[in-house]
């Protein structure tokens, strides 16, 4: 397998994950509704997702993407580390953005976060004991609200979203170009779009735990 194929795998899985984030984000905006309404619609939405065969398929693609993205990141980083030069004084950083050079570290933070995030909600929803809401759906909303009563967890989520934002800014523009977009004008647009997209989604996600922390205390 050559460098191009590995990069294409990174780009495709990464861009798919970006797209997933949008869906995930739109669904989760229900958390900003008034508590009772939020509880009803959020729980309904959650149970809809678990029952749908199409969503299930997508979720497998999602799991696979995360795994491939992480594995190839590891392979690529290992090769790159060996291929790149090391200097006793290194000021090469002046010519690139720090987050573009540290996608691996940002990615690791995000991966740890994903594990935590799965454990917080996905695991509990799938395998934990979870009560029903008045409308007969599993009451994930309450689990979420309870979780975000913990200040430390809110901070962890906010930090993770910051890492994700930087990861996305670089990832979107880089991934699109790996897929072959080279026209200067469109590349510029994509860079702007990627920046807006990354910031909007990550700030939005970060606001969710903050909002819940402050409105439910």
């Amino acid at each position: 397998m050559n460098t191009q194929i590995r990069k294409i795998i990174m780009a495709c899985t990464g861009l798919f994950l970006c797209f997933f984030l949008l869906i995930h984000f739109l669904g989760n905006t229900q958390l900003f509704l008034a508590p009772e309404e939020a509880r009803k619609s959020f729980n309904m939405y959650s149970s809809f997702l678990t029952g749908n065969i199409f969503v299930k398929l997508v979720s497998y693609v999602l799991y696979l993407s995360i795994i491939l993205h992480a594995i190839y990141a590891l392979i690529i980083s290992t090769i790159n580390r060996k291929a790149g030069g090391h200097y006793s004084t290194d000021n090469r950083g002046r010519s690139s953005k720090w987050y573009s050079r540290n996608m691996g570290i940002l990615g690791t933070i995000i991966l740890i976060f994903i594990v935590l995030h799965f454990q917080n909600f996905w695991y509990v929803y799938k395998f934990g004991s979870i009560g029903l809401d008045p409308w007969g759906h599993k009451d994930l909303y309450t689990v979420v609200v309870t979780a975000f009563q913990q200040g430390w967890l809110v901070i962890v989520y906010v930090i993770a979203m910051a890492a994700l934002a930087y990861h996305l800014i670089q990832g979107i523009s880089s991934g699109i170009r790996t897929l072959g977009l080279f026209h200067p004008k469109f590349v510029r647009w994509i860079n702007i779009f990627g920046m807006v997209y990354a910031i909007a989604i990550c700030v939005g996600f970060a606001l969710m735990p903050i909002y819940i922390y402050f409105t439910h205390n």
């Binding site: 690529i76 090769i79 790159n80 060996k82 690139s96 573009s100 880089s174 200067p184």
Partner: peptide
């Protein structure tokens, strides 16, 4: 044995001829 391009764009900045990273795209 060259590594993967990760689009940090540092090369364009240091290139004596200012060759654009869009060449890579």
């Amino acid at each position: 044995q060259f590594g993967h391009c990760s689009n940090t764009e540092a090369c364009e900045v240091e290139c004596p001829q200012g060759i654009s990273v869009l060449n890579i795209a």
